[in-house]
């Protein structure tokens, strides 16, 4: 079962063009969609989750046309949105049971089992009788996960899931997701690069509505081997460095600025070779040194 996205574009009525001719093929397994805020990730997620319509393009899940056969898609969809609320005056158990019914688990005993299993899996079993209005952010997020997992969905859309979770919860959540990836298409959209690098077998980088790169994380990182150089620099020198070299990112490390530069060979004596990681791939792609944004095959150092 593959998810095919072909030529999808959308422009909002205030003029903002959210997606420009996006084409992706997403096989079963964990797929990461990486991009900065405002790149169009949520819009694309909502389209696949049948909540929005593109202006152009087609989306197909296996044989099902996602845009025309929304009801069919929803039968096997699990969607965890970036922002959502819950009814404050009802307990988690009751609301999850209600969603289970809506998702088609009609038989009462089966439903009870599923609800219990999911609540245990998301670690909400102890607080299942509490009203959802009193849940913390993390607990609410876990509830959303439970709802998304109802019915063993074959298409799982997860939009910025770890943004509100503490480190332990994040690890647990990622573990949970990884178990899913066997037979379903799991599309994880995030701006946190570590999520993708830890979990995903394939990824795409999106910015300003355009897909800049489709690749597998490991090979993409390996391609940058020997091309990333690091240097400690002061703030005043940074401007000059940017003019002379291709600076990919600057980070603060123990109070000092470290610049990473992309070059085929050592750009200078102060530079040290650095181990590339997915973040470098990400920044390079966004900046236009890799992927479709690239104007020239190699960046030419300024003289």
């Amino acid at each position: 079962m593959k998810l095919h996205i072909r030529g999808v574009s959308k422009t909002y009525s205030n003029g903002v063009q959210a997606l420009k001719n996006v084409t992706l093929t997403i096989p079963a397994g964990m797929y990461g969609l990486l991009g900065p805020n405002g790149a169009g990730k949520s819009t694309l997620m909502r389209m696949i989750a049948t909540l929005q319509e593109p202006d152009e393009g087609r989306i197909r899940l296996g044989d099902i046309d996602v845009l025309e056969q929304k009801a069919e898609v929803r039968k096997t969809l699990g969607y965890l949105p970036q922002e959502f609320g819950v009814y404050p005056k009802v307990s988690a158990e009751k609301l999850l049971d209600h969603f289970a019914l809506l998702k088609g688990i009609a038989e009462r005993r089966a439903r009870k089992e599923v609800v219990e299993a999911l609540l245990r899996q998301t670690n909400l079993w102890e607080v299942r009788k509490q009203k959802l209005g009193g849940y913390s952010g993390g607990m609410k997020q876990r509830f959303g996960v439970a709802v998304a997992l109802l019915g063993n969905p074959q298409l799982m859309i997860v939009d910025e899931p770890t943004a509100g979770l503490d480190p332990a919860e994040r690890v647990r959540f990622l573990n949970l997701l990884s178990e899913l990836g066997e037979n379903s298409v799991v599309l994880l959209s995030t701006h946190i690069v570590e999520d993708v690098s830890e979990l995903c077998t394939r990824m795409a980088i999106i910015d300003e509505g355009e897909i800049l790169l489709e690749a597998e994380p490991l090979p993409a990182v390996e391609e940058l081997n020997g091309k990333i150089w690091g240097r400690v620099i002061s703030k005043e020198d940074l401007a000059r460095l940017e003019r002379e070299h291709v600076v990919i990112s600057t980070k603060l490390f123990a109070g000092r600025t470290v610049a990473r530069v992309y070059a085929d060979a050592a750009p200078g004596p102060d530079f040290e070779p650095a181990e590339p990681d997915l973040e470098d791939v990400y920044f390079s792609t966004i900046a236009g040194h890799l992927g479709r944004r690239r104007v020239q095959p190699d960046p030419a150092p300024a003289s």
Binding site: S13, N14, V16, Q17, A18, N37, E208, E242, V247, T250
Partner: peptide, 26 residues
């Protein structure tokens, strides 16, 4: 969407104003 913008001509499609890519402090 405010209803008058649906009535009026659609403005030219443009990209969202790019957030500074964050890296280059510029």
């Amino acid at each position: 969407t405010p209803c008058w913008s649906r009535i009026s001509r659609r403005r030219d499609a443009h990209s969202p104003t790019p957030a500074a890519s964050g890296i280059l402090g510029n």
